[in-house]
Amino acid sequence: MAKVAFLGLGVMGYPMAGHLQAAGHEVTVYNRTAAKAEKWAAEHGGGHAATPREAAAGAEIVFSCVGNDDDLREVCASENGALHGMAEGTLYVDHTTVSAKVTREMAAAAEERGVTFIDAPISGGQAGAENGQLSIMCGGPEAAYECAEAIMSVYAKICRRIGDTGAGQTTKMCNQIAIAGLVQGLSEALNFAEKAGLDGRAVVEVISQGAAGSWQMMNRYETMLDGKFDHGFAVDWMRKDLGICLATGDEIGASLPVTALVDQFYKDVQAMGGNRWDTSALIERLRKLSAS
Score class of each variant (00 low, 15 high):
273 G>K: 05
2 A>M: 13
237 W>M: 15
251 E>N: 02
128 G>C: 11
229 F>Y: 13
54 E>R: 07
248 T>V: 11
82 A>V: 03
76 C>H: 11
193 A>N: 03
96 T>F: 00
275 N>A: 15
277 W>T: 05
76 C>G: 11
270 Q>M: 13
36 K>H: 01
94 D>P: 02
219 N>K: 13
181 G>C: 05
267 K>P: 07
232 G>V: 08
275 N>T: 13
31 N>R: 04
159 C>H: 14
242 L>Y: 07
243 G>I: 02
33 T>A: 03
262 V>M: 09
150 A>L: 08
236 D>H: 12
280 S>T: 09
255 S>H: 13
152 M>Q: 11
96 T>H: 09
90 T>I: 11
256 L>P: 05
82 A>Y: 12
19 H>D: 01
204 V>Q: 00
121 P>A: 10
214 S>G: 01
280 S>Q: 12
234 A>E: 12
109 A>C: 10
192 F>L: 15
46 G>N: 06
129 A>N: 09
38 E>R: 12
137 M>H: 11
205 E>F: 13
63 F>D: 07
164 D>Q: 14
104 R>S: 07
283 I>G: 05
178 A>G: 12
271 A>N: 11
75 V>P: 01
290 S>P: 10
57 A>E: 06
39 K>P: 02
209 Q>W: 03
118 I>F: 04
254 A>K: 02
192 F>V: 14
288 K>V: 15
56 A>N: 05
179 I>L: 13
267 K>C: 06
4 V>W: 04
32 R>V: 04
95 H>M: 08
5 A>C: 03
35 A>Q: 12
132 G>K: 05
61 I>A: 08
291 A>I: 10
233 F>T: 02
134 L>Y: 02
86 M>E: 07
238 M>N: 07
218 M>R: 15
71 D>Y: 03
46 G>T: 07
167 A>G: 05
146 E>T: 12
214 S>N: 09
233 F>W: 04
133 Q>Y: 08
197 G>T: 03
104 R>K: 15
36 K>T: 06
78 S>H: 05
125 G>K: 05
140 G>F: 11
287 R>E: 05
280 S>V: 08
221 Y>Q: 00
252 I>D: 05
22 A>V: 10
240 K>W: 11
145 Y>Q: 10
153 S>G: 12
142 E>V: 15
4 V>E: 04
56 A>Q: 01
9 L>H: 04
201 R>Y: 15
223 T>I: 11
97 T>Q: 00
60 E>T: 10
52 P>E: 13
182 L>H: 14
188 E>W: 15
78 S>P: 02
114 G>Y: 00
